[in-house]
Each structure stands twice: as C-alpha cells, then as structure tokens.
Amino acid sequence: MEQLIEQLKQQIIEALNFEDMTPADIATDAPLFGEGLGLDSIDALELLMLMDREYGIKIADPKAGKDIFRSVRTMAEYIQEHRTK
C-alpha cells in the first residue's frame, strides 16, 4: 500500500504538472481539492484519465470521483480494490 501511495504521488505530480513538488510535499491524507492541493475541475478530469491509463479503471460518473479523489489515500484504496492492470 505504501509503495502504491508513493507511486501515485509521483504520477499525480507528473500528470498535473506540479513543477516544484516532490512526493514528500503531498500529505497522504490531505484533501486534494479546495484547501489541500487546490486542484480544479480540469485536474479532476485529468485524474480520471490517470486512473484509466495507469490502472485500467474507468469511472463513468464524474460525481463518483468526489469520494475517490478525497485524498491520495482514498485514491490508493480505490485503486487497490478495482485495478485491472
């Protein structure tokens, strides 16, 4: 799980172009939207694509993304359960 979390942080940094950030800068349980990383609607769509590309998970309803993308930990938990690759 910890390894998946680290890998996921790296993928988020690359997918969302966080130029000056390292995985250590992202708190595993901090909110991704609003207060925490301050992601916006395009970032949310990019995360949906990341889930598909890296883990073979298709999320049809963007509203379902809300719970999955609460934090890096919730994302990792969802991936572990649903990944197809």
Binding site: N17, I42, D43, L45, E46, R53
Partner: peptide
C-alpha cells in the same frame, strides 16, 4: 488512447 483533458483545453 487516453485523451488528456488538460491538453485538450
């Protein structure tokens, strides 16, 4: 095929 919304915009 993984269309990127961040690039599309």
């Amino acid at each position: 095929y993984y269309p990127s919304p961040a690039l599309f915009v």
